[in-house]
Simulated scan of single mutants.
Amino acid sequence: MVEKKSTSAVKTTAKKASSQKAINMGNMLNAENVGFKAGDVYNALAAANKALTVAEIAKTAEISMEEVLLGIGWLLKEGKVKDEANKMTLA
């Protein structure tokens, strides 16, 4: 007799992955919110006084990686930050 393998472990893993908190970007995409995220990124870089990766900025500023990228985009457009060996630093 052939034993049938349980797929419950696979289903549980899939449920966990799909139930992770998703960020609603629709509510964030306005000039005011993006400007606040840019300020968070700028303050994190100023406090560190060195180049930081996106993950380090997110941890320091206590915001998501998506929010860091929004803020970096704003600051890049204004010429306030620059890329230095795959890290962001104040310009």
Rank of each mutant, 00 (worst) to 15 (best):
V2S: 12
V2D: 14
V2I: 14
V2E: 15
K5A: 09
S6D: 12
T7Y: 14
S8F: 14
S8P: 04
V10F: 08
V10G: 05
K11E: 07
T12F: 15
A14R: 15
A14I: 14
K15E: 12
K16E: 07
K16V: 04
A17K: 10
S18W: 08
S19P: 00
Q20N: 10
K21V: 06
K21W: 04
A22M: 08
A22H: 10
I23F: 01
I23S: 02
N24Y: 08
N27E: 08
M28S: 01
N30P: 12
E32D: 13
V34W: 03
V34H: 05
K37A: 01
K37W: 01
G39A: 05
G39C: 10
G39L: 10
V41L: 10
Y42S: 07
Y42M: 07
N43T: 11
A44I: 03
N49A: 09
N49T: 09
A51F: 05
L52C: 04
V54K: 02
V54G: 03
E56S: 14
K59L: 13
A61N: 01
A61F: 01
E62A: 08
E62M: 06
E62Y: 03
M65W: 12
E66Y: 05
E67I: 05
L69M: 13
G71Q: 02
G71V: 01
W74K: 04
L76D: 06
K77H: 13
K77N: 11
K77Q: 13
K77A: 12
E78P: 07
V81D: 01
K82F: 06
K82V: 11
D83H: 10
D83K: 12
A85V: 07
A85S: 12
N86H: 11
L90I: 15
